[in-house]
Amino acid sequence: MKPAPFDYLAPTSLADAVEALGSYGADAKVLAGGQSLVPVMAMRMSRFDHLIDLNRIPELDFVRHEAADVVIGAMTRESRVGSDPTIAENVPLLTDATQYIGHFQIRNRGTLGGSLAHADPAAEYPAVAMALDATMHLVGPDGSRSVSPEEFFLGPMTCCAEDEELLHSVSFPVWGPGSGFSVQEFARRAGDFATAGVAVGIRVADGVVDKAAIAFFGMASAPVRARELEIELVGQKAMDLDFQEVGNQAVAHLQPPDDIHASSSLRRQIGAQLASRALSTAVKEAT
């Protein structure tokens, strides 16, 4: 369990990192917190000629409240995301989700951008980004571009970043007053990747749902929204919602994966319960 040989680069500015990526492209790999990459390197399941370490680039580590968004740098540690007061106040779904990520040692190294770019379908942050309609900002030698989560997450462990691009930051919209959020997750053990999980946001005005977002993780090849159901929820009285029924509807169209830990149908069964619990919690918080 020792990696194959590679060259190591540790640029200290974003410009240098982008330049290095531009020259090595597909022969390079970017290192963020390393919590997923380093183990697969050690098993020689990931091989490349150049490792570009982003850990010495301070300009990628920030949390800023800008207009209607909270913008977070890709190299912001998960432990900071989980404890930052600006995030807790304006994007509490991120704060809530962070507690489920691994263990504190992992969160001390792992980064927001690393988790998103790694695109593990069972990870928490991709579902939060999906639920909140975040905007992912990519940067490359040809400039920057911004994409939606739907465009960003292509499949298991696959995001839309080109070989020469890296994730720079992510904008999370602030939902404002009357909102409630909840992340619910089931995992074999505390800190494991989710067997099934869901991130939910609800906004209620005058007792009526005016915005809803339900995003599952661990239930498909990428985080997935229950869009049709969300549309149905908007306009309904929050107090009249049958959470169990809504939970069942939320998973009805999903075909979750099978593995040695849980079958597809068990995942759906668990997902319905989690969605029901998350909606109930979020509505309570919103009203």
Binding site: P39, M43, R188, R189, A190, G191, D192, I260
Partner: peptide, 16 residues
């Protein structure tokens, strides 16, 4: 063998 790392061979932790 299908459970060749601690990702699949699950040990109990203090939380369990």
């Amino acid at each position: 063998p299908l459970t060749t790392t601690f990702l699949d061979y699950l040990l109990p932790t203090a939380a369990e």
